[in-house]
Amino acid sequence: MIVVMRRGAEQAEIEHMAQRVESLGLKAHIIVGAEQTVIAAIGDKRPETKESLESGPGVASVMPILAPYKVASREVKPESTQVVVRDLKVGAGCLGVMAGPCSVESEEQLITTARAVKKAGATALRGGAFKPRTSPYAFQGMKEEGLKLLAAAREETGLAIVTEVMSPEDVELVAKYADVLQIGARNMQNYRLLEACGRVDRAVLLKRGPAATIDELLLAAEYILNEGNQNVMLCERGIRTFETHTRFTLPLATVPYLHQKTHLPVVIDPSHGTGHAYLIEDMCAASVAVGADGLIIEVHPKPEEAMSDGYQSLNLDQFAQTMTKCRKVADALGIEM
């Protein structure tokens, strides 16, 4: 349920009610809004709980949360959340662009890409140090050496670093180097990993599984939020259908639908969503047009030489051209980019 505090409620009253919620065996999440503060009381509620909370100091009302996902719901927080990491701003009228190679391959490859994507307008560098691959014989990433190269690229360019973490045991190591922890599609329902990411002070980019429903995506996000980490971004990267003309099917209706259901920002991944470099520019522009809060795009200096996903990676000139088109759409809609 939601404990809605009166406008102007004192901090002492808010803290008192959070403690009251905890004393009833519920978990309290304090969410500060533009006009009011609410406390999400999560857990098995007893019939007398609502009445007990309604009489508290500074309380305006107590209401049930109808959605199965509690902290992620717009019932709890009507205002859109904006995730801010260094110069990267995602959500609440700001479009953040995360760009870079599928895999970190070398210092030269990464620094060249970082400089180019920053010049074109990206505010975060994406790159895989740990790579989940379908085949055990495929390139698995440079691991910690790759993380060190990402940190060096950040040092030179100032770009926030986005990279994937694959297991709970690796969370602290990856968080040591990265600004945003990416949870890949294959791990969307790795609940121990979700909880581990919820316990660190890093933003999280959560990708939708290729066969996951929207409710399953939101409930996966709830695992992270429930551990106290409010800096969560949802990522639509395409779902598996019977269609074969693209790598996955990229449903852009996900963006406005999620905006109705959750306050969390929504990022689109057109690289995995299409699997073809020649489709990415138009899908990026379309994503901006439907209100996406962010884009994550694979970019490589020489896609034909990439160790993974070269066929869906833009080269540096193509990325710059894509950013120019997206900026025109963003400007027309009044979106900061």
Rank of each mutant, 00 (worst) to 15 (best):
E155K: 15
G128F: 01
M233C: 14
N187L: 14
V59S: 00
V83P: 02
T49P: 08
I42K: 09
E144R: 11
G273C: 06
Q318S: 10
K89S: 10
E10V: 12
S135H: 04
Q318Y: 07
F242Q: 09
L218W: 00
A178Y: 02
G121K: 01
T249I: 13
E108R: 13
T246A: 13
L159E: 00
R240I: 07
C94H: 09
A116E: 01
I280G: 05
V329E: 00
E336G: 11
D269Q: 14
G100A: 08
D170F: 03
S52Y: 12
H272W: 15
Q11A: 15
E156R: 09
V4I: 12
K89H: 10
A99G: 15
D179Q: 05
L264S: 06
T322G: 01
E108S: 12
E48I: 15
K325W: 06
A34I: 13
D179N: 11
I214T: 03
P64S: 06
T262G: 07
L252D: 15
Y69E: 01
A292C: 12
G273H: 03
T322R: 00
E35W: 04
K119M: 05
E227H: 06
R133W: 06
G275R: 14
E281I: 05
A129D: 03
N190E: 13
D170I: 06
R6L: 14
T213H: 11
D201N: 15
V266D: 04
P132H: 14
K328G: 04
G58E: 05
H245F: 13
S271D: 04
L110V: 00
G100E: 02
G43E: 12
D269T: 13
I224K: 04
E243P: 06
N315P: 08
P101N: 07
P256D: 11
V232G: 08
L205P: 02
Q321E: 14
K119G: 03
Q312Y: 13
I30A: 10
E243G: 07
T244D: 12
D309P: 10
G8C: 04
G158Q: 09
S308N: 11
E172S: 12
E236M: 06
R7W: 02
G228H: 07
D87R: 11
